Simulated assay, not measured.
Amino acid sequence: MKASWDIFCCVVDNFGDIGVTWRLARQLAAEHDVAVRLWVDDLKSFERLWPAVQPSLASQRHEGVEICQWPQQWPAVQAADVVIEAFGCKLPADYRAAMAARPAPALWLNLEYLSAEGWVSGCHGLPSPQPDRLQKYFFFPGFVEKTGGLLRESGLLARRQAFQADPEARRAFLASLGVTVAPGARLVSLFAYENASLAGWFDAMAADASPTHVLVPQGRVLGDVQAWLAVDELAVGAVHRRGALTVQVVPFVRQDQYDLLLWSCDFNAVRGEDSFVRAQWAGQPLLWHIYEQEEYAHWEKLEAFLALYVEALSPAAGQALTDLWRAWNQGLAMADSWRRVLEHWPELAANARQWGEKQAAQPDLATALVQFYRNWI
Protein backbone atom coordinates (compact mmCIF):
# COMPACT_ATOMS: atom_id res chain seq x y z
CA MET A 1 0.00 0.00 0.00
CA LYS A 2 1.30 3.44 -0.91
CA ALA A 3 2.37 5.75 1.87
CA SER A 4 0.09 8.79 2.10
CA TRP A 5 1.51 12.32 2.18
CA ASP A 6 -0.33 15.56 2.98
CA ILE A 7 1.34 18.87 2.05
CA PHE A 8 -0.15 22.09 3.44
CA CYS A 9 0.49 25.40 1.69
CA CYS A 10 -0.61 28.94 2.52
CA VAL A 11 -0.03 31.10 -0.53
CA VAL A 12 2.13 34.13 0.30
CA ASP A 13 3.12 36.76 -2.27
CA ASN A 14 1.19 34.91 -4.99
CA PHE A 15 3.59 32.29 -6.32
CA GLY A 16 6.62 31.39 -4.21
CA ASP A 17 5.14 28.97 -1.69
CA ILE A 18 2.73 27.29 -4.09
CA GLY A 19 5.47 27.06 -6.71
CA VAL A 20 7.69 25.05 -4.40
CA THR A 21 4.98 22.82 -2.92
CA TRP A 22 3.44 22.05 -6.32
CA ARG A 23 6.81 21.00 -7.73
CA LEU A 24 7.42 18.87 -4.66
CA ALA A 25 3.99 17.22 -4.78
CA ARG A 26 4.34 16.41 -8.48
CA GLN A 27 7.77 14.90 -8.03
CA LEU A 28 6.76 12.79 -5.02
CA ALA A 29 3.83 11.34 -6.98
CA ALA A 30 5.76 10.80 -10.21
CA GLU A 31 9.07 9.49 -8.90
CA HIS A 32 8.44 8.02 -5.45
CA ASP A 33 5.08 6.25 -5.85
CA VAL A 34 3.35 7.89 -2.90
CA ALA A 35 -0.22 9.17 -2.59
CA VAL A 36 -0.06 12.96 -2.28
CA ARG A 37 -2.70 15.46 -1.25
CA LEU A 38 -1.82 19.13 -1.61
CA TRP A 39 -3.94 21.45 0.57
CA VAL A 40 -3.93 25.03 -0.77
CA ASP A 41 -5.71 28.09 0.60
CA ASP A 42 -5.62 30.11 -2.66
CA LEU A 43 -6.41 28.18 -5.82
CA LYS A 44 -6.71 31.35 -7.91
CA SER A 45 -2.99 32.03 -7.57
CA PHE A 46 -2.32 28.33 -8.15
CA GLU A 47 -4.27 28.56 -11.42
CA ARG A 48 -1.72 31.07 -12.76
CA LEU A 49 1.04 28.48 -12.36
CA TRP A 50 -1.06 25.54 -13.56
CA PRO A 51 -3.98 26.72 -15.72
CA ALA A 52 -5.75 23.35 -15.56
CA VAL A 53 -6.57 23.97 -11.89
CA GLN A 54 -10.24 24.86 -11.32
CA PRO A 55 -10.50 27.18 -8.29
CA SER A 56 -14.18 26.36 -7.73
CA LEU A 57 -13.55 22.68 -6.95
CA ALA A 58 -13.03 21.40 -3.44
CA SER A 59 -10.96 18.49 -4.76
CA GLN A 60 -9.38 17.66 -8.12
CA ARG A 61 -6.52 15.58 -9.52
CA HIS A 62 -3.65 16.80 -11.64
CA GLU A 63 -0.33 15.13 -12.42
CA GLY A 64 -1.11 12.29 -10.00
CA VAL A 65 -1.71 14.71 -7.10
CA GLU A 66 -5.01 15.28 -5.30
CA ILE A 67 -5.36 19.05 -4.95
CA CYS A 68 -7.69 20.11 -2.14
CA GLN A 69 -9.09 23.48 -1.21
CA TRP A 70 -8.00 24.33 2.34
CA PRO A 71 -11.38 25.42 3.76
CA GLN A 72 -12.10 27.58 6.78
CA GLN A 73 -14.38 24.85 8.11
CA TRP A 74 -12.11 21.81 8.20
CA PRO A 75 -13.66 18.53 6.94
CA ALA A 76 -13.30 15.21 8.68
CA VAL A 77 -10.34 13.55 6.93
CA GLN A 78 -7.86 10.88 7.91
CA ALA A 79 -4.39 12.20 8.65
CA ALA A 80 -1.65 11.01 6.29
CA ASP A 81 1.44 8.97 7.07
CA VAL A 82 3.63 12.00 6.34
CA VAL A 83 2.47 15.56 6.98
CA ILE A 84 4.40 18.52 5.57
CA GLU A 85 3.71 21.92 7.05
CA ALA A 86 5.28 24.13 4.39
CA PHE A 87 7.01 27.37 5.35
CA GLY A 88 5.56 27.77 8.81
CA CYS A 89 1.87 27.53 7.90
CA LYS A 90 -0.21 26.26 10.82
CA LEU A 91 -2.05 22.96 10.56
CA PRO A 92 -5.80 23.09 11.27
CA ALA A 93 -6.59 22.11 14.86
CA ASP A 94 -8.97 19.37 13.70
CA TYR A 95 -6.28 17.90 11.48
CA ARG A 96 -3.84 17.85 14.38
CA ALA A 97 -6.47 16.00 16.39
CA ALA A 98 -6.75 13.47 13.55
CA MET A 99 -2.97 13.05 13.64
CA ALA A 100 -3.07 12.39 17.38
CA ALA A 101 -5.87 9.86 16.90
CA ARG A 102 -3.94 7.72 14.44
CA PRO A 103 -3.05 4.25 15.75
CA ALA A 104 0.47 4.72 14.36
CA PRO A 105 2.12 8.14 14.57
CA ALA A 106 2.47 10.35 11.52
CA LEU A 107 5.78 11.90 10.53
CA TRP A 108 5.24 15.65 10.86
CA LEU A 109 7.75 17.81 8.98
CA ASN A 110 8.10 21.58 9.04
CA LEU A 111 9.54 22.34 5.58
CA GLU A 112 11.50 25.54 6.05
CA TYR A 113 12.48 28.28 3.62
CA LEU A 114 15.70 27.82 1.68
CA SER A 115 18.82 29.32 3.26
CA ALA A 116 22.59 29.01 2.96
CA GLU A 117 23.20 30.28 6.50
CA GLY A 118 25.68 28.21 8.48
CA TRP A 119 23.31 27.29 11.31
CA VAL A 120 20.91 25.50 8.94
CA SER A 121 22.91 22.25 8.74
CA GLY A 122 22.96 22.07 12.56
CA CYS A 123 19.17 22.41 12.83
CA HIS A 124 18.19 20.23 9.88
CA GLY A 125 16.31 17.14 11.01
CA LEU A 126 16.01 18.18 14.66
CA PRO A 127 12.83 17.16 16.54
CA SER A 128 10.43 19.64 18.09
CA PRO A 129 8.13 17.98 20.70
CA GLN A 130 4.54 19.18 20.53
CA PRO A 131 1.48 18.87 22.78
CA ASP A 132 -0.93 15.93 22.37
CA ARG A 133 1.90 13.38 22.04
CA LEU A 134 2.92 14.70 18.63
CA GLN A 135 6.40 15.55 17.45
CA LYS A 136 7.52 17.40 14.38
CA TYR A 137 10.90 17.75 12.72
CA PHE A 138 12.57 20.71 11.08
CA PHE A 139 13.52 20.02 7.46
CA PHE A 140 15.75 22.54 5.72
CA PRO A 141 16.46 22.68 1.99
CA GLY A 142 20.03 23.75 1.42
CA PHE A 143 23.19 23.89 -0.63
CA VAL A 144 25.57 21.83 1.50
CA GLU A 145 25.75 18.37 3.02
CA LYS A 146 23.60 17.76 6.12
CA THR A 147 20.71 19.73 4.61
CA GLY A 148 17.74 18.58 2.52
CA GLY A 149 19.13 19.68 -0.84
CA LEU A 150 17.21 21.43 -3.62
CA LEU A 151 14.14 20.50 -5.64
CA ARG A 152 15.33 18.76 -8.78
CA GLU A 153 13.36 16.31 -10.88
CA SER A 154 15.07 13.23 -12.26
CA GLY A 155 16.90 13.96 -15.52
CA LEU A 156 16.41 17.74 -15.25
CA LEU A 157 19.99 18.70 -16.08
CA ALA A 158 20.17 16.26 -19.00
CA ARG A 159 17.00 17.79 -20.48
CA ARG A 160 18.39 21.28 -20.01
CA GLN A 161 21.68 20.38 -21.67
CA ALA A 162 19.88 18.81 -24.63
CA PHE A 163 17.70 21.90 -25.04
CA GLN A 164 20.62 24.32 -24.83
CA ALA A 165 22.55 22.26 -27.39
CA ASP A 166 19.67 22.57 -29.88
CA PRO A 167 19.43 26.09 -31.37
CA GLU A 168 16.26 25.18 -33.26
CA ALA A 169 14.50 24.10 -30.05
CA ARG A 170 15.41 27.44 -28.47
CA ARG A 171 14.28 29.40 -31.52
CA ALA A 172 10.96 27.51 -31.66
CA PHE A 173 10.24 28.03 -27.97
CA LEU A 174 10.99 31.74 -28.11
CA ALA A 175 8.88 32.05 -31.27
CA SER A 176 5.96 30.50 -29.33
CA LEU A 177 6.20 33.54 -27.03
CA GLY A 178 6.44 35.93 -29.97
CA VAL A 179 10.15 36.54 -29.36
CA THR A 180 12.74 36.96 -32.10
CA VAL A 181 16.27 37.71 -30.90
CA ALA A 182 18.62 39.69 -33.14
CA PRO A 183 21.90 37.91 -33.99
CA GLY A 184 24.52 38.55 -31.32
CA ALA A 185 22.07 40.04 -28.78
CA ARG A 186 22.36 39.02 -25.16
CA LEU A 187 19.04 37.61 -23.93
CA VAL A 188 18.01 38.45 -20.35
CA SER A 189 14.92 37.39 -18.38
CA LEU A 190 13.61 39.72 -15.68
CA PHE A 191 11.28 38.42 -12.96
CA ALA A 192 11.50 40.68 -9.91
CA TYR A 193 9.70 42.68 -7.27
CA GLU A 194 9.44 46.46 -7.59
CA ASN A 195 13.02 47.79 -7.69
CA ALA A 196 14.47 51.31 -7.67
CA SER A 197 17.63 50.03 -9.38
CA LEU A 198 15.89 49.07 -12.58
CA ALA A 199 16.11 52.44 -14.34
CA GLY A 200 19.88 52.70 -13.88
CA TRP A 201 20.41 49.10 -15.02
CA PHE A 202 18.28 49.65 -18.13
CA ASP A 203 20.15 52.88 -18.84
CA ALA A 204 23.43 50.97 -18.75
CA MET A 205 22.14 48.30 -21.13
CA ALA A 206 20.71 50.91 -23.48
CA ALA A 207 24.09 52.67 -23.62
CA ASP A 208 26.09 49.47 -24.14
CA ALA A 209 27.96 48.85 -27.38
CA SER A 210 26.40 45.37 -27.63
CA PRO A 211 22.65 44.72 -27.96
CA THR A 212 20.58 43.28 -25.11
CA HIS A 213 17.03 41.89 -25.34
CA VAL A 214 15.18 41.78 -21.99
CA LEU A 215 12.13 39.55 -21.58
CA VAL A 216 9.79 40.62 -18.78
CA PRO A 217 7.09 38.12 -17.74
CA GLN A 218 3.92 39.68 -16.36
CA GLY A 219 4.53 40.59 -12.73
CA ARG A 220 5.25 43.24 -10.16
CA VAL A 221 8.30 44.79 -11.83
CA LEU A 222 6.27 45.85 -14.87
CA GLY A 223 5.37 49.15 -13.21
CA ASP A 224 9.05 50.12 -13.01
CA VAL A 225 9.61 49.02 -16.62
CA GLN A 226 6.63 51.09 -17.73
CA ALA A 227 7.96 54.14 -15.87
CA TRP A 228 11.40 53.79 -17.50
CA LEU A 229 9.84 53.51 -20.94
CA ALA A 230 7.50 56.43 -20.17
CA VAL A 231 4.50 54.66 -21.72
CA ASP A 232 0.88 54.54 -20.56
CA GLU A 233 0.59 50.76 -20.53
CA LEU A 234 2.51 47.56 -21.17
CA ALA A 235 0.55 44.66 -22.59
CA VAL A 236 1.81 41.18 -23.32
CA GLY A 237 3.70 41.25 -26.59
CA ALA A 238 4.72 44.90 -26.31
CA VAL A 239 8.22 45.56 -27.69
CA HIS A 240 10.12 48.79 -27.05
CA ARG A 241 13.64 49.76 -28.12
CA ARG A 242 15.93 52.37 -26.66
CA GLY A 243 19.54 52.48 -27.78
CA ALA A 244 21.04 48.99 -27.60
CA LEU A 245 18.22 47.71 -25.35
CA THR A 246 15.07 45.92 -26.50
CA VAL A 247 12.41 45.33 -23.83
CA GLN A 248 9.61 42.85 -24.46
CA VAL A 249 6.70 41.78 -22.25
CA VAL A 250 5.95 38.05 -22.35
CA PRO A 251 3.11 36.09 -20.75
CA PHE A 252 3.25 34.65 -17.27
CA VAL A 253 3.90 31.03 -18.21
CA ARG A 254 3.38 27.74 -16.40
CA GLN A 255 6.30 26.23 -14.54
CA ASP A 256 7.57 23.88 -17.23
CA GLN A 257 7.62 26.68 -19.79
CA TYR A 258 9.38 28.98 -17.34
CA ASP A 259 12.22 26.46 -17.18
CA LEU A 260 12.54 26.72 -20.97
CA LEU A 261 12.57 30.50 -20.71
CA LEU A 262 15.43 30.38 -18.19
CA TRP A 263 17.31 27.85 -20.33
CA SER A 264 16.92 30.11 -23.37
CA CYS A 265 18.43 33.19 -21.75
CA ASP A 266 22.05 34.19 -21.23
CA PHE A 267 21.29 35.88 -17.89
CA ASN A 268 18.35 35.46 -15.54
CA ALA A 269 17.09 37.92 -12.94
CA VAL A 270 14.79 36.04 -10.58
CA ARG A 271 12.96 36.57 -7.32
CA GLY A 272 11.85 34.66 -4.23
CA GLU A 273 12.67 30.96 -3.86
CA ASP A 274 11.15 28.86 -6.65
CA SER A 275 12.51 30.84 -9.61
CA PHE A 276 15.81 31.30 -7.74
CA VAL A 277 16.38 27.53 -7.62
CA ARG A 278 15.24 27.03 -11.21
CA ALA A 279 17.69 29.70 -12.39
CA GLN A 280 20.53 27.77 -10.75
CA TRP A 281 19.54 24.65 -12.70
CA ALA A 282 19.58 26.76 -15.89
CA GLY A 283 23.36 26.91 -15.67
CA GLN A 284 23.56 30.60 -16.63
CA PRO A 285 24.68 33.67 -14.64
CA LEU A 286 21.88 35.00 -12.46
CA LEU A 287 20.73 37.84 -10.26
CA TRP A 288 18.53 37.16 -7.22
CA HIS A 289 15.98 39.61 -5.86
CA ILE A 290 15.40 38.17 -2.41
CA TYR A 291 12.06 38.54 -0.64
CA GLU A 292 12.37 41.20 2.06
CA GLN A 293 11.93 40.15 5.68
CA GLU A 294 11.58 42.05 8.92
CA GLU A 295 14.75 43.30 10.62
CA TYR A 296 16.71 42.66 7.40
CA ALA A 297 16.82 38.90 8.03
CA HIS A 298 16.84 38.43 4.25
CA TRP A 299 20.16 40.24 3.99
CA GLU A 300 21.95 37.54 5.98
CA LYS A 301 20.47 34.91 3.66
CA LEU A 302 21.66 36.81 0.61
CA GLU A 303 25.19 37.21 1.92
CA ALA A 304 25.37 33.57 3.04
CA PHE A 305 24.44 32.36 -0.44
CA LEU A 306 26.82 34.74 -2.17
CA ALA A 307 29.71 33.53 -0.01
CA LEU A 308 29.15 30.00 -1.33
CA TYR A 309 28.31 30.93 -4.91
CA VAL A 310 31.38 33.08 -5.61
CA GLU A 311 33.82 30.84 -3.72
CA ALA A 312 35.37 29.36 -6.90
CA LEU A 313 35.55 32.67 -8.77
CA SER A 314 38.56 34.95 -9.09
CA PRO A 315 38.46 37.85 -6.60
CA ALA A 316 37.61 40.37 -9.32
CA ALA A 317 34.79 38.33 -10.83
CA GLY A 318 33.40 37.41 -7.43
CA GLN A 319 33.41 41.04 -6.32
CA ALA A 320 31.72 42.22 -9.52
CA LEU A 321 28.85 39.75 -9.07
CA THR A 322 28.59 40.44 -5.34
CA ASP A 323 28.41 44.20 -5.96
CA LEU A 324 25.70 43.69 -8.59
CA TRP A 325 23.55 41.58 -6.24
CA ARG A 326 23.97 44.02 -3.37
CA ALA A 327 23.08 47.01 -5.52
CA TRP A 328 19.98 45.29 -6.95
CA ASN A 329 18.72 44.34 -3.49
CA GLN A 330 19.38 47.77 -1.99
CA GLY A 331 17.98 49.85 -4.84
CA LEU A 332 21.39 51.35 -5.66
CA ALA A 333 23.12 52.27 -8.92
CA MET A 334 24.10 49.22 -10.97
CA ALA A 335 25.89 50.61 -14.02
CA ASP A 336 29.43 50.11 -12.73
CA SER A 337 28.89 46.63 -11.32
CA TRP A 338 27.02 45.55 -14.49
CA ARG A 339 29.92 46.76 -16.63
CA ARG A 340 32.35 44.72 -14.50
CA VAL A 341 30.10 41.66 -14.69
CA LEU A 342 30.23 41.88 -18.48
CA GLU A 343 34.04 42.02 -18.33
CA HIS A 344 34.07 38.70 -16.45
CA TRP A 345 31.25 37.05 -18.38
CA PRO A 346 33.05 33.86 -19.54
CA GLU A 347 34.23 33.11 -16.00
CA LEU A 348 30.79 33.80 -14.52
CA ALA A 349 29.11 31.59 -17.12
CA ALA A 350 31.51 28.71 -16.39
CA ASN A 351 30.95 29.14 -12.66
CA ALA A 352 27.18 28.99 -13.13
CA ARG A 353 27.44 25.64 -14.94
CA GLN A 354 29.85 24.23 -12.37
CA TRP A 355 27.67 25.37 -9.48
CA GLY A 356 24.66 23.53 -10.93
CA GLU A 357 26.70 20.37 -11.40
CA LYS A 358 27.97 20.59 -7.81
CA GLN A 359 24.44 20.97 -6.45
CA ALA A 360 23.17 18.11 -8.64
CA ALA A 361 25.74 15.79 -7.05
CA GLN A 362 23.74 15.98 -3.81
CA PRO A 363 20.39 14.24 -3.19
CA ASP A 364 17.41 16.30 -4.30
CA LEU A 365 14.83 17.57 -1.81
CA ALA A 366 12.07 15.05 -2.64
CA THR A 367 14.48 12.11 -2.39
CA ALA A 368 15.85 13.45 0.90
CA LEU A 369 12.33 13.72 2.34
CA VAL A 370 11.46 10.16 1.31
CA GLN A 371 14.72 8.84 2.78
CA PHE A 372 14.09 10.71 6.04
CA TYR A 373 10.69 9.02 6.27
CA ARG A 374 12.13 5.57 5.57
CA ASN A 375 14.76 6.06 8.24
CA TRP A 376 12.10 7.24 10.69
CA ILE A 377 9.65 4.37 10.38
Results as ranks from 00 to 15, higher is better:
E66K: 06
Y137W: 14
K146S: 14
L107N: 11
S115E: 00
A97G: 11
V120P: 02
G125Y: 10
G148F: 13
D94M: 07
G148T: 14
L57I: 00
A86H: 05
Y113P: 07
S115I: 04
A98E: 11
L91H: 07
L109I: 15
K146C: 02
S59H: 08
A101K: 06
D132S: 13
P131K: 10
N110E: 13
V65C: 05
G142F: 08
G64M: 04
S128Q: 08
F138Q: 06
E63H: 11
G125S: 02
R102M: 10
I84P: 03
E145D: 10
V77P: 01
W119Y: 13
K136V: 11
P71V: 02
D132Y: 08
V144L: 05
G125I: 12
L150N: 09
R133H: 15
N110P: 07
A101T: 00
F139V: 08
G122C: 08
D132G: 07
L126T: 13
P55K: 02
A106Q: 11
L114G: 04
G125L: 13
F140S: 09
Y95G: 00
W70V: 10
V77G: 01
A100D: 01
Q73G: 02
F138E: 06
C123W: 12
K90G: 06
Q130V: 01
S56F: 14
L134G: 11
I84G: 02
V82A: 11
G118F: 00
G125M: 05
Q60F: 02
W74Y: 08
A98K: 12
K90T: 15
L57E: 06
P141W: 09
Q60A: 04
Q69D: 14
W108E: 00
L114R: 02
Q130N: 00
K136H: 13
P141K: 04
A93C: 01
A106T: 11
H62D: 06
C123Y: 15
S121W: 07
E66N: 03
S115H: 00
F143N: 10
E112C: 00
Q135I: 12
E117I: 10
G148Y: 08
L57G: 01
P141G: 04
K136F: 11
S128M: 15
R96C: 10
L126R: 12
H62N: 05
M99E: 10
Y113R: 05
E85G: 01
P141A: 03
P103A: 12
E117L: 13
P141D: 07
E112R: 02
P127I: 14
E117H: 12
W70K: 05
T147P: 00
P71K: 02
V83P: 04
F139A: 03
P131V: 11
L91W: 07
A76Y: 03
K90D: 08
Q54D: 15
P55W: 01
R96Y: 03
A106E: 09
G118P: 00
Q78P: 05
P131D: 13
V65R: 04
